[in-house]
Design a protein around this nucleic acid. Structure first.
Lengths: 218, 218
DNA sequence: TTAATAATGGGTATTAATAACAATAAGAGC
DNA sequence: GCTCTTATTGTTATTAATACCCATTATTAA
């Protein structure tokens, strides 16, 4: 099996050398080039150095990691970019993956995780470091539990009522709905009264708020 | 350093033996007990076999993995349960972590990921397997992009208008709001007209839907 | 089979909301 | 100082919504 070819892009010398030493200690990994900026990476590639993976700091002077992803994506779509970062801001994580990053790793990962990440990415999967995965999990759990705790209000509405409810929310008047549904205006009025009564609302305004909050609108 | 002590709970013999062989081939891991059901795990622990990690199938005959988490949590809160599963249903993943699981691993992971997962968990972090992390990432990206594409509607509302808007959504009539805010009923009517005009709504109903959807209600 | 319920409608009365014509006072910006 | 905007209020008219009373029909449950 060939060695995994990597270009390392990181503007701080000490950090770059440390990571390089770690990677070169592995028999199946080879750092074929280094760069202190995104533009330098593109220059390397233009001169024929084609890696499997680019390991890039998200924060570099001229061209940052995110911009580098875009540039690489368009010229060499099969090269995988992995972002290195000090920041655990979720915004950057999402942005990186949306732009096509294959990995996002905080700089405080240990050796084994870094190597595992590179092999995972080399295998075609995406990798998010353990610490960030945990953060994301906690957020999802939070959202899920917040959702489940508020969904106590459950009202049994008929199909017709839900249909009318949706039209009301779109701004239709009783007469318009009656014409649209081939019903009497009086019937629609009856449904609306039922909706207000069943949901315990005071009027249309509070009814619609209830409907949106509790997900009764398509 | 001591060996990592593991109890393996899995009702299918072949699978259990396979995993056991994989783990025992590692110098720093020891499978101290096996079980074909959650209840058997508790029996082992009652008789003095205390592991660092319990690796448990989510689907077992009597007591499943999730129930096992709860039982272990209450009697031995420092023991970490890692769930093994065939299913990639997100619901189970969330449920497992909400109950206090330390890991969730699909059965199709390779050896190195399994070992990495166990070491990560032993170190106190939570672990979600690469495949599921990717699924979750994709969902987050989806949500994020869906959010950003709809948030084009931005209306500049004054403090008063937002105040009135909230009261309207709570079901107050113009007269009630006028009394509450020490204003003329006619003033409230004016604000409501502005709200409808500014947001491009047809009436109160569509105004309130707009307000909830776009987050104008506290 | 009978009773209950949901969907459909009618009548009528009252209340609330919407719309379009205004004016005045206060404050911000030039 | 002057202008422009915003918040405030007025008058009047029309339209829409709400709240009761009720009946009929069809379907469902007991």
């Amino acid at each position: 099996m060939d060695k995994l070819k990597i270009i390392l892009a990181e503007d701080h010398n000490l950090v770059r050398n440390g990571i390089k030493m770690l990677l070169e200690s592995q028999a199946d990994i080879e750092v074929i080039a280094e760069a202190d900026d995104g533009t330098r990476v593109l220059e390397h590639m233009a001169s024929g150095l084609i890696p499997d993976i680019i390991l890039a700091d998200i924060n570099m002077p001229e061209m940052d990691g995110i911009s580098l992803i875009k540039a690489v994506k368009s010229s060499h779509p099969d090269i995988k970019v992995v972002i290195l970062s000090m920041l655990d801001h979720e915004k950057y994580v999402m942005q990186a993956f949306m732009e096509g990053s294959y990995g996002y790793i905080l700089k405080n990962v240990n050796e084994s995780e870094m190597l595992f990440a590179l092999k995972t990415v080399a295998g075609g999967a995406k990798y998010l470091c353990v610490e960030l995965t945990e953060t994301m999990l906690n957020r999802c759990i939070h959202e899920a539990s917040a959702q489940s705790e508020q969904e106590e209000v459950q009202v049994d509405l008929s199909m017709r009522e839900i249909e009318v409810l949706n039209l009301v929310a779109e701004g239709y008047t009783n007469q318009e709905m009656a014409d649209k549904l081939f019903l009497s205006k009086r019937t629609i009025e009856g449904h609306r009264q039922m909706l207000i009564d069943k949901t315990g609302s005071k009027n249309t305004a509070s009814l619609i708020r209830f409907a949106v909050v509790n997900g009764y609108l398509n």
